[in-house]
Design a protein around this nucleic acid. Structure first.
Length: 136
DNA sequence: GCCAACGTTGGC
DNA sequence: GCCAACGTTGGC
């Protein structure tokens, strides 16, 4: 079991929409490092859902429903892939970026080290701690 | 609105 | 292959 964090602007695709859709194909990733992370995802892997820009908080937990497959929104023959994600549960208390930065146990978090990467790996302890901070 | 980080593009 | 220019992302 591996752990990940994906980012989305709430204005572009929100957690609420994700719940309403009961999951989605995580398409549109156009960065090689992020793509490599998508390719490493396996069904059942746990994924934190982060709202960037306006809210800047981890808002929910999702899981990988299907492994990487060609991104239907990309040109045929392109290297881009998408995984299927489905919601697990919302965090009772969203964990804001400020709280993450304030916790020294999360100092190594890829989100802080590489703030522009949209699909990031998490250590199991980082996932567990953020879930705990979120009230799970 | 500004700026830092960083990926991509294109000239050489 | 190097590097400057440029575009995008995302925090502040």
């Amino acid at each position: 079991m591996n752990y990940w964090l994906v980012k989305s602007e709430a204005e572009a695709y929100s957690w609420a929409q994700f719940l309403a859709d009961d999951g989605t194909d995580w398409t549109g990733v156009r960065n090689y490092q992020a793509r490599n992370n998508l390719n490493a995802m396996r069904p059942g892997d746990q994924v934190l859902f982060y709202h960037s820009m306006t809210e800047k908080a981890v808002v929910g937990v999702a899981e990988v429903a299907a492994p990487a497959a060609p991104d239907a929104t990309a040109e045929a023959g392109s290297p881009w892939v998408a995984v299927a994600l489905r919601p697990v549960q919302a965090l009772p208390r969203p964990v804001p970026l400020a709280a993450i930065k304030a916790d020294e146990r999360l100092a190594d978090l890829a989100l802080l080290r590489q703030s522009r990467l949209s699909v990031l790996p998490l250590r199991p302890d980082e996932f567990a701690l953020i879930a705990q901070l979120g009230g799970l």
